[in-house]
Simulated scan of single mutants.
Amino acid sequence: MKNILQGKELGFGAAPLGNMFRSITDEEALATVDAAWEQGIRHFDTAPIYGAGLAEIRLGEILSKRPRDEYVLATKVGRVILDELEDPASRDLGERSGLFKYGRKNKIEIDYSEDGTLRSIEQSLKRLQTDRLDIVYVHDIAQDIYGDEWVSKFESARTGAFRALDRLRDEGVIKAWGLGVNLVEPIEIALDLDDAKPDAFLLAGRYSLLDHDRALQRLMPKAAKENVDIIVGAPYSSGVLVGGAHFEYQKASPEIVAKVDRIKTIADRHNISVKAAALQFVLANPAVASVIPGASRPARIAEDVAAMNEVIPPAFWQEIREQNLVAQNAPLPK
């Protein structure tokens, strides 16, 4: 798997292209993807749920004009987008409410079965205007909003989507598959499966400067030992690390804001950006193959690239460690 993402440590997370949190124009979305390409980014990650297919449509509009062999394209299964629209008078807008309320109004059907997986892939190929996918993740089988229900969703995916993706990989239809989740536990379980062997995992929000303790306990060491890639999503913790108001897709608590302020104070003292610290911290872990921050403005892409190349003095990391702002066993950039 590592050869797929080699040289693509900085990727592009396309969730904002689905009008996450705010509505953006097609022109702004397409300019952002263009900027990512011009900055040398060749790893693009999306999903059907991002704006009920809107992110895939926008991403495909640009990438279809680029040489297909030059980039890695990842999407997800577990959601089938229906032609039927939501009733705008309904209070229950399903999974379109909240994060993607500004996206397309199509109904979204949760489906982790083999048939649903194949339908989802077929739809994604059309929206992305491509004939193949490199990585396919089983999306959101574990979210905090499900509580204990995630175990039953995992089992449904194990007997449906997992087996379908395992077969598609073996047949050469896709290059790799895994889980795209925001909890550590389902990845740990998947690593121990005998009847399915994922190649990579997209872990969103659980390995960042603000939240990494649980992942360090077992997941990261086991993934590195078994040569299974971890791709980190949401490295800025939904934006709060870089001036935003959200943490874990919700308004950040006073405690989180205070922790960010402490990190920023130390960063300012060493004349570095928190964005650089956030990205370089994630990539310092040997299990991490790539990090995929999201962006909805072209200027943000240049900032991400600059942050990757920013020189951070060892004294910054030493102070962060001494102030107990990172775990004592967390790998730090050298």
Rank of each mutant, 00 (worst) to 15 (best):
D69V: 11
L5K: 02
P313E: 05
K222C: 01
G94L: 04
P331T: 04
L133R: 10
A252I: 13
T130P: 10
F162K: 05
E28W: 07
W150V: 02
L73I: 10
A31V: 00
D45H: 12
G244P: 08
G233A: 07
Q129K: 15
R91S: 14
E28C: 08
G98T: 02
V80S: 06
R68T: 04
E255Y: 06
I301H: 12
I49E: 03
V33S: 02
L219Q: 14
S120D: 01
S120P: 08
V151F: 10
D199S: 15
L30T: 11
Q280G: 07
A47T: 06
W37D: 03
D304V: 05
E114W: 05
E109R: 14
A287R: 06
S290K: 03
D148I: 06
A234Y: 02
A157Y: 02
A52N: 04
I312E: 01
S90L: 01
Q323P: 07
D131E: 15
R91M: 12
Q39N: 15
G40R: 12
F21K: 06
D69K: 14
I301D: 07
L193E: 14
R297G: 10
Y236P: 08
E122V: 01
K2Q: 13
S23D: 14
E38L: 12
S237P: 01
S97L: 08
P298G: 00
A36C: 08
E248K: 14
A14C: 12
A215R: 05
I174M: 11
Q250S: 13
V305F: 11
E155A: 11
K76D: 10
Y137P: 08
L59F: 08
Y236T: 13
D134T: 08
N329M: 08
Y71D: 11
A245V: 15
E310M: 03
A245C: 11
A47D: 09
I189R: 15
W150D: 02
A142K: 09
V138N: 05
K107N: 07
G51H: 03
A29G: 11
D87R: 10
W150R: 01
I292P: 05
P221E: 07
S124F: 07
H246I: 10
A330F: 04
D92E: 13
E226A: 12
V72N: 11
I301W: 11
K175T: 07
R58Y: 03
L59G: 04
N271T: 07
L202R: 13
Y249G: 10
G205I: 03
N3S: 14
S64C: 11
L93N: 13
K2T: 08
M1C: 09
R262S: 06
Y249V: 09
M220F: 12
Q250P: 12
L325M: 07
S156A: 15
A224T: 12
L193C: 00
